[in-house]
Nucleic acid binder design. Structure first.
Length: 420
RNA sequence: GGAAGCGUCGCAUAGUUGGUCUAGUGCGCUUGUCUUGAAAACAAGUACGCCGCAAGGCGUCGUGAGUUCGAAUCUCACCGCUUCCGCCA
């Protein structure tokens, strides 16, 4: 959510921003509804003021006649008030719907473009893995080593179902334990959050109303979060933090649920795109300064890169173009890992910052030195998702005999050097 | 799942019968006076939001709706908490 005052005073910037994101929104309509809203608000407040004034005098002693006359007069006020309040309520509803459609403004450094094919590479690390044998894909490698069972996964869960078993399960847990240590050292507080979350928090984080089709819903009207970002952002909702406790750095670990409603024909096989997975997620709340946001954004991104480097998997980082940004994002980097059998990089995670877009909706503030309360800035980034990471990991570390070399940093967590 | 009770501006409380409650008090906190410094004492301040250049106005007593000229106070629904019972770990 943007500040309506900002929209009023910078409507051209807001329009340009939406255009860069390829999002349709009628700012002029919003501003005209806003005018109507303010006019109604001021009339309603005036009428209420009249009511209050009379109400005070009614408390003192008055003759019955005077009292009766005032009541008659106030009946008229009440009637108009009822009418105007109803109109105001409707106007606010329209206004809110329009406000929810206004995207945050992308940073000037965000490349122009429509889809992920327009993203720009900003960094490349490691040489593409070469093999002196014909490499297999992760499905074949892991199935052969009894690390994964897709047939039974589909039998039990359905489309995109999977079981991780044996060393597949152990390797996942080794990665979790390594990630916990790695990111704890970076100053993040680990959190295991609820993943069944009420809809207010989804609106606050910007996943509703636009993303409803991709969410699983419970019969109680809650939703299953697709990322720990959602409950982690909800954690401080409605709170006023102390400035000296910022930045807050959290490392969420949770299952993630995504219906993948719009991508039924993409990545139908394997562990790239599944409906249920696990993820470590970094969330930062910092003070309301663009420079701080940028600084922590780079830091979050660097953390995923370092983690990937420590595993020894070749990757590149792209700056996402305008059309590939979500509603609330100001800028986003994707880190993409090399997948040998597909002969391309595949996304493993992304780091974004939002300024106060989410915190305005979630009402997360802090007291500044001048005593003013401001909305904190929020950022989030993948730390590491499983099982998706296994795709690159096993494909890059496979050996001619079908076994997998275990990255050095994971060996002590897994307790072996080779998966065979 | 059944029964009862409760939800007031950091914390704790007042708030009988609807009308100076534009919410009182205590604690805490901030500032000032006094003091070498601290404590104590005294004084002032201390919820949040919206509209407005300002003066000022309006709203919020868990949330929403209703009754009324007027609701923290009455009615209904929802949410949350507590206790007891049941059920399951």
């Amino acid at each position: 959510m943007l500040d309506i005052k900002f929209i009023r005073e910078n409507k051209d910037i807001v329009k340009e921003g939406a255009k860069k994101k390829h999002i349709e929104v009628d700012i002029d309509e919003l501003l005209s509804v806003d005018e109507k809203r303010l006019a109604l608000l001021s009339r309603v407040e005036f009428l209420r003021g009249e009511q209050n004034k009379v109400s005070v005098s009614m408390g003192s002693k008055l003759s019955d006649a005077a009292r009766g006359q005032l009541i008659e007069e106030m009946k008229l006020v009440k009637e108009e008030l009822k009418e105007k309040e109803e109109e105001l309520r409707e106007t606010i509803k329209t206004w809110q719907n329009l406000m929810l459609q206004v995207p945050n403004i992308p940073d000037i450094s965000v490349p122009e473009g429509e889809s992920d094919s327009d993203n720009q590479e900003v960094k490349k690390w490691g040489d593409i893995t070469t093999f002196n044998f014909e490499p297999k894909d992760h499905i074949e490698i892991m199935t052969n080593l009894k690390m994964v069972d897709f047939d039974r996964g589909v039998k039990v869960h359905g489309f995109r179902g999977y079981f991780l078993l044996g060393d597949g399960a152990r390797l996942s847990m080794a990665i979790w334990n390594y990630a916990l240590d790695f990111f704890s050292q970076k100053g993040f507080t680990p959190i295991i959050p609820p993943i069944i979350v009420n809809k207010e928090i989804f609106f606050g984080t910007g996943y509703l109303p636009q993303g409803e089709d991709d969410l699983y819903k419970t019969q109680d009207g809650d939703f299953l979060a697709g990322t720990a970002e959602v409950p982690l952002m909800g954690f401080h909702s409605g709170e006023i933090l102390n400035k000296d406790e910022l930045p807050k750095k959290y490392l969420g670990f949770s299952p993630c649920y995504r219906r993948e409603a719009g991508s039924h024909n993409k990545d139908v096989k394997g562990l790239i795109r599944v409906q249920e997975f696990y993820k470590f997620e970094q969330v930062i709340l910092c003070e309301a300064s663009h420079a701080e946001s940028v600084r922590y954004h780079e830091e979050l991104n660097r953390n995923i890169e370092e983690f990937t480097e420590s595993l020894g998997i070749p990757y590149h980082t792209v700056a996402n173009c305008g059309g590939d940004l979500g509603m609330g994002q100001v800028k986003k980097y994707d880190v993409e890992l090399w997948v040998p059998k597909e002969n391309k990089y595949r996304e493993i995670g992304s780091a974004s910052y939002f300024h106060d877009f989410q915190t305005r909706r979630l009402n997360i503030r802090y007291k500044d030195q001048d005593g003013k309360s401001r909305y904190v800035h929020s950022l989030n980034s993948t730390a590491i998702p499983t099982p998706r990471i296994l795709v690159s990991l096993v494909e890059n570390f496979q050996q001619a005999d079908g076994t997998i070399r275990v990255p050095e940093v994971l060996q002590k967590y897994l307790g072996k050097e080779i998966i065979s």
